[in-house]
Structures are given as structure tokens and as C-alpha cells.
Amino acid sequence: MKKLTGLNKNEVTDISRQVADAFYDYKYNEADQGLIKYIKSLDDMFIYMNAITQAAYNSGLLYTTSDNREGYLMLSGEGFGRVKFFDGIKMIMAEKKALGGFSAMKSFIKACFSEGSTIELRMKKAKRKFIRVEMLVVRPEFQGQGYMRQLLEDVYRIADERGVSVILDTDDKDKAGRYMHLGMNLDRVRECGDRFHMYDLIRA
């Protein structure tokens, strides 16, 4: 795992396009629509993911597998920090645009919290320290070659050194299954509406 530094804005934008393509092209389990239920075009997915990727990079939270950049990882929490304030504002504004306006964003947020708190908020309430996987994506041409495992094992090693848990959530049953195969445990499933679920996972 390698921290990305020294990039210009165009280089980060190129990474954002790779991330957006990977998310938009994903084939969801029949029980789930995930983000595609709310973000209906590739252009909108790019707007959404570009804001996240730019914020991650500007805040020092963006990592990759190697110099070949087979995959990308955004981490926050214990020892990593969080998104800077103004980048967070930019993320919110981009999310609103990608989702189709304030009303649509409100519906999205309401759906995500419809069954109570996220695993991150519950961990904070319990005063438990953690590393949060905010985003993990392997570029399509490198999938099935062990890069997801590599990134997660790097996170696990750091978490073990710091004596903290690893948490994440995902919007698809099959994605959750892959994370569980690679060492995460299912904490709960949030029923967020018709064919929209959030799967909270933890490695304690």
C-alpha cells in the first residue's frame, strides 16, 4: 500500500475517472441497486467520485497498491485523520449535484439512515477506536488478481499494530460477501428501501 502524493489536479481527476468507471460498471446482486438507484449516469457518478477522490487526496487519505495503481483505497480514522473541512463542503455540494438536487440528496441520506446509525457513528458513540475503509476499488482490468486482498491485508496489519478495529459499509450483498471472505464480519444489514441495503462490516 502506497500513499499518493505529488500529483497535480489532472492526475487526481484521471484517478477519479477510473474509480467512477469501476463503480458505475459494477453488476449488482439482484437484491440490490446500490448507488445506481440514486446516481443514474456515468457523468453523475464521476461528479460524485471526483469530489470524494479529490477530498481524499487533498486530506492525505488516498492510497494505491503500487506504482502501477491497480487499485485505490481511502482510509480515515485512527492515525489517518479525516477529510478537511472545505473539502468536505465540496463533497456535499458535488453529492447534491450528482444526485439531482437537494431533495434527491435528502432522500438518499434519509434512506441510508432509515434503520439507525451507521457503524461509524455507533463505534464513535461506544468510544471505540477504528480505521474506516471509506473507499476501496480495483480497476476492472486488474480485478480477480488478488489486489483487493492485498489492500485489506495492509489495512489489517496497520490496525493490528494500533490495536483498533477495521470498519466499512457497502451497498451490495455480493460485495459484502467478498469482504467477509477476506476477513471482515457482518455487523448488520440496514434495510434502506426497495432493493437498497447497506451492509455494515467490522474486523474487531
Rank of each mutant, 00 (worst) to 15 (best):
V137C: 10
A176S: 12
M74D: 09
V137I: 07
A55E: 10
N10M: 08
T64I: 12
D32W: 06
H197A: 12
G60S: 04
T64K: 12
V155E: 04
L168Y: 15
Q143V: 09
D43H: 05
V138E: 02
G34N: 02
Q143N: 08
S117R: 14
G146I: 06
R195C: 15
I39C: 00
V12T: 14
G183K: 07
A111S: 11
Q150W: 01
L61K: 01
K124R: 08
Y72H: 04
D14V: 14
Y38E: 07
K125H: 09
D32Q: 13
V155R: 04
L99Y: 06
F86H: 06
I92L: 02
G183W: 03
L121H: 07
E120A: 02
G144W: 01
L182Y: 00
F85E: 10
G77S: 01
D160S: 14
S103E: 13
L168C: 08
E30H: 13
I109K: 08
L201Q: 12
D171H: 12
T13Y: 01
Y48T: 09
D67H: 08
K97T: 04
M1A: 10
G88Y: 09
G163R: 04
Y26S: 10
K27E: 14
D25V: 05
D87K: 13
L75N: 05
K3V: 14
A204E: 15
N68T: 14
G71S: 03
K110T: 08
S103W: 08
I36H: 09
G144Q: 05
Y57Q: 10
F196L: 02
G116L: 03
K27D: 12
I36T: 10
E141H: 01
V138I: 08
M49I: 03
K106N: 05
R128F: 00
E78A: 10
G144L: 00
D67C: 06
S76D: 11
V19Y: 00
A176L: 06
Y147G: 06
E95H: 07
S107V: 06
N29W: 02
D87L: 11
A94W: 03
V133W: 00
F142Y: 10
L136Y: 07
R122P: 01
E134Y: 09
E70M: 06
R139P: 02
G6E: 11
R149D: 07
K106D: 00
A56L: 14
I89S: 03
Q145A: 12
D194R: 00
K3P: 11
I52Q: 09
G163K: 11
K127G: 02
K175M: 14
